Simulated scan of single mutants.
Amino acid sequence: MTRLPRRLLLATAIAAFTAFAQAASAAWPEKPIRIVVTFGAGGASDIIAREIATPLAQTLGQPVIVDNKPGAGGTIGGMEVARAAPDGYTLMLSNSTPLSIGPFTLAKLPYDPVHQFTHIAQVGVAPVLIMANPKAGIASLKDIPKAVGAAGGQMGFGSGGPGSIGQIVGEMMKADMKLNLDHVPYRGGAPMSADLLAGTIPLGIDVITAYVPMVKLGQLTGLAVTSRTRSPLLPQVPTVAEAGYPDLLADNYFGVSGPPGMPAPVVEKIRAALAEIVARPAIAKRFEELGVLPAYVGPAAFTTVVEKQIRDWTPAIKAADLGPK
Rank of each mutant, 00 (worst) to 15 (best):
T2W: 07
T2D: 01
P5A: 10
R7A: 15
L9T: 11
A15G: 15
A15Q: 03
F17V: 11
F17I: 10
T18H: 05
A19T: 14
F20T: 08
A26M: 09
A27Q: 15
W28P: 01
P32L: 12
R34Q: 08
I35H: 06
I35C: 06
V36I: 15
F39L: 10
S45W: 02
I48K: 06
A49Q: 12
A53N: 03
T54W: 04
G61D: 06
G61Q: 03
T75P: 03
I76D: 04
M79Y: 00
V81R: 07
V81I: 10
S94P: 00
N95F: 01
P98F: 09
P98G: 09
I101M: 01
T105M: 13
P110A: 04
P113V: 06
V114I: 15
F117K: 00
I120M: 08
I120V: 11
A121V: 12
A121L: 11
V123D: 00
A126V: 10
P127C: 07
V128S: 05
L129F: 04
I130G: 03
M131F: 09
P134D: 10
P134H: 09
K135G: 07
G137E: 12
A150R: 15
M155L: 15
G156Q: 15
G158Q: 07
G158Y: 06
G160W: 05
G163L: 01
G166D: 03
Q167R: 07
E171T: 02
E171A: 08
L179Q: 09
L181T: 08
D182T: 14
V184F: 14
P185E: 09
Y186W: 11
D195M: 12
A198G: 07
G204R: 04
G204P: 05
A210Y: 09
Y211K: 12
Y211M: 13
L217T: 13
L217E: 15
L220E: 07
A224S: 10
S231L: 08
S231W: 00
L234C: 06
L234W: 04
V240K: 07
Y245R: 13
D247W: 00
D247F: 01
L249A: 14
A250D: 05
A250I: 04
D251A: 00
G258N: 02
V267W: 03
V267H: 03
E268A: 13
A275Y: 05
E276V: 01
V278C: 06
V278A: 03
P281E: 06
I283D: 10
K285F: 13
F287W: 13
V292D: 03
A295M: 12
A301P: 01
T303P: 04
Q309L: 05
I310W: 01
I310N: 05
I310Y: 02
W313S: 01
A316Q: 13
A316W: 09
K318E: 09
A320G: 09
A320K: 09
D321E: 13
L322F: 04
